[in-house]
Nucleic acid binder design. Sequence first.
DNA 1: CTACTTGCAAAGCATTTGCACACAT
DNA 2: ATGTGTGCAAATGCTTTGCAAGTAG
Lengths: 170, 170
Amino acid sequence: MDDLERFQDFLKAQGQKLTQQRETILRRIEQMEEHFSADDLYEVLRKERKGISKATVYRTLALLVEAKLLDALDFERGHLLYERAHGGGEHHDHLVCIRCRRILEFHNEDIERLQEEVAKRYDFHMISHTHHIYGLCGRCQRKERGRDLSSEEVDRPRVRPSRRSRPVTN
Amino acid sequence: MDDLERFQDFLKAQGQKLTQQRETILRRIEQMEEHFSADDLYEVLRKERKGISKATVYRTLALLVEAKLLDALDFERGHLLYERAHGGGEHHDHLVCIRCRRILEFHNEDIERLQEEVAKRYDFHMISHTHHIYGLCGRCQRKERGRDLSSEEVDRPRVRPSRRSRPVTN
DNA sequence: CTACTTGCAAAGCATTTGCACACAT
DNA sequence: ATGTGTGCAAATGCTTTGCAAGTAG
């Protein structure tokens, strides 16, 4: 059972339809890079003359998240990023390079377990979590060599966005 | 040395001024609840007839974050929340109740250590991190008793925001 | 058939910005 | 004085929505 069937089942289950646009979008997503924004996807479709509106892109992405075929991630203030869902499998978290915006994934069983304990200690029923580590990836550390890494520009990303490179928040 | 002095020093260091508005805002923040949005603060000031514009509220919050007197948090898609910075002290993370929006704080040294290891393993220079656990606080779990907790309404917060209660993303 | 979808343009929201005026130092 | 800061309103950027027309089942 592939994603398309899964999507169709999901849609049928709520009396919704598998349209041309929805199918096109699902297929195109299979070839997107790991993390993409609604606009990234819209641009790709537009360049390929698929004639799908931005509204439909947004609506379909939301459906795919509901169908658990995509996960929505929220590291960049101002817009969501999507990634293919690792089908019920292992959860993963992210290392986000604040310089080049590259995103690495990690999974650590010990951390997963410890956070369960934390939740229990607070009488908290954990449903999901996000764990983002912000910093410089290997490549960017090397580029930074010589520059002052502790300067606020890196160490304290500002809240006031610079529109070019988004700030990192806690 | 209190926050006001610290802020003044920070401002002076960059040739900026401590204005009436900035002082009023700083003082008012000391009486805000733990986590507040720019708009929460603006509303309070407006009700108290302080005559401070929204633009100034935003500009001042950004300054306070730069001055490390506030931290900006980003759990809710669409707007930032601020909290008083725990002066250089111990970092903490958050448990966010998706039902009542209450936010609890936690600190776990083991997790902190493990994530350092993860970063190292990926040749990543960690600068900051965020770790948010979403779920139901004890109070809301009890209220939920009898309802179907695994229903998508709770288990799979949708991307499509309901405008009233914001969705949770990963 | 007929309810669900789409495209378009307009609306929303939180936040930022341009500008003329006001104010700390 | 003079460079900063402020209020206002307009601009942004991403995302959602209303509505008339199109389409899947």
